[in-house]
Design a protein around this nucleic acid. Sequence first.
DNA 1: TTGAAAGCGCTAACAC
DNA 2: GTGTTAGCGCTTTCAA
Lengths: 363, 363
Amino acid sequence: MRDAGLTMEKASGAPPVTLATIAARLGVSRSTVSNAYNHPDQLSPALREKIFDLAQTLGYTGPDPVARRLRQRKAGAIGVLFAESLQKAFADAASALFLEGVAIAGEKTDSGMLLIPARPTEENAQAINDAIVDGFILYSIPPGHPFVEAALRRHVPVVCVDQTKIGGVSWVGIDDLAASAQAAQHLVDLNHRRIAVVVFGLNTNAPADEYASTPSVSRLRLQGYRRVLETAGISWSDVPIVECVENTESAGAAAAHRLFEGSGRPTAILCTSDPLALGVMRAARDYSIPVPSQLSVIGFNDLPMAANAEPPLTTVRQPLVEKGIEAARLLVAATQVGEKGNVQLEATLVVRESTAPCPAVVA
Amino acid sequence: MRDAGLTMEKASGAPPVTLATIAARLGVSRSTVSNAYNHPDQLSPALREKIFDLAQTLGYTGPDPVARRLRQRKAGAIGVLFAESLQKAFADAASALFLEGVAIAGEKTDSGMLLIPARPTEENAQAINDAIVDGFILYSIPPGHPFVEAALRRHVPVVCVDQTKIGGVSWVGIDDLAASAQAAQHLVDLNHRRIAVVVFGLNTNAPADEYASTPSVSRLRLQGYRRVLETAGISWSDVPIVECVENTESAGAAAAHRLFEGSGRPTAILCTSDPLALGVMRAARDYSIPVPSQLSVIGFNDLPMAANAEPPLTTVRQPLVEKGIEAARLLVAATQVGEKGNVQLEATLVVRESTAPCPAVVA
DNA sequence: TTGAAAGCGCTAACAC
DNA sequence: GTGTTAGCGCTTTCAA
């Protein structure tokens, strides 16, 4: 259903306006015009004014960014590599918050964000060679992905986030293991014993050895739960684990349904994300299981939705926006002074009203 | 909580490896090396092999993208301008699907996506002048925003999407008015008379005249509802309209609560997005109002969540990914042949199980 | 204050 | 097949 009004225009453009055009017209040199934009103190205000006026008239927006970048050896953009389709990448809203942080930090250094989604099918890493960027942020890219190597080969600074952790490369993230342990410990302290786990994104179809060396955040969180529960004398094999393909409220609800249908209904459920946890709470409502009196639920991330949930969700807070800010900051620092380093941000359990002491258990 | 292991390195880099380096070392000319990368048929396979080998050894990843772009007069990236914070932009998942489409189309033309968020505070449009892009996609930017003018000034192709509609500039979108009219008509056909509306993003604090000329999609959808309902003899002033600040399930649930508490509970609710509609259905469950027998609910967009809802949601489908693909396609066409045009995509009502004939009304 | 000269790294003609 | 030439549009010494 295409509009009929397709038109052609500007096929043969007017001769392009450049610095030189302005300079010639005004009878000054190109560097003077350049200075008007880059070093205002290097010429008289009057001349500067004249230059801008003519530029305006001629429709000249200022120095061509590509040429400027070539000269300055600086791209003015940060490449952000995503493992999955963007659709999936933003499903959690956590990614969006992270990107928001990158944008905030980028703004301060006049850097844009070049998004490079790494579809699973796409072996071709040409997009990475072609990217006009000062460096890359690797966000939830599984180590071993061809893009990682391609980014490294560019010889620009690289910052890894979360899951992606590479020797000798800067990293930003939280201690997922300790963070999830806090969540599990909270339940143990409330005397819960029949605890279930709802998790997403284990990528169980990926090569096992790959994840053995560098586990995904989901696996780390599972480990954190496990460590605490086993210390409390709860056998890990007794802990039901439901895996969701999508990280959504609906998926969480479906997972909870499975848990509720089974025998020995859990008194508490650990979720590796907030959407999953909200889904679990919704399912509990469907089953008329009161939260938290009969069922405790814990999420992860502390997205805005967590505090607004009914009841407000106990969850692990991690500073998502700050994570983005730090990643961008680290990248910029690396381009400028070659600084390299790791930043581990603090994650803390936020206790709200979705958790309560274990009710008297009816065997 | 910064790691102690900050290190310095590469402060004074080795002399950079360029095409010339390879050429000199191999005793061939630079163009031959260039051809190895860009015109493989222009040199012997053996020589090409030798070039790549040396490049590998020297850690040369191929022609510098900035220099290449300068020479070719092509940036290899599409700028995507967002009105709001990214956080908000991705809240609906509809934006993410749109971006996905842009990415898919961009991939085919070796174009990346440069994201440029337009925070409300940010008067400074420098980011747009500095952007290394072949054109801009204006996504949900209110006309009148300083970024619009800045993008236009760059003299690169611009494509508007949805809300943003500018004279003489390409546009991609759907007929929001007709689409929402379909939804309302469906309810009228089912004999519903007590109909309510849940809407987001009216931006009521924006200057009224601004929106009078170019209404946001939300306003258009409202208009579509209104037209149909009034034709059916339902006074628009009798239609309760609840506005949500956020486009989320929780916000939709809260809105529904307000509608249920009031007198004369509606028998049907029109929502301008799927998350809002799911929230409404959830609230109905909380109030033990069976959907669809006692309450019909309609969403907008047909996100994946709509089909998976319980009951599956009747909603207006618009091809979000395709919208992104078309926008990118249009932009690329514009850069290449100066084509300009409008693409209006088809939106259709998808009837599922959240709507049913109006129950016998208890006055 | 302003200008002249020298590239940044690359590609596209064209000639050999 | 390969090399030579001539810039793309800009910034930056350095000299005037």
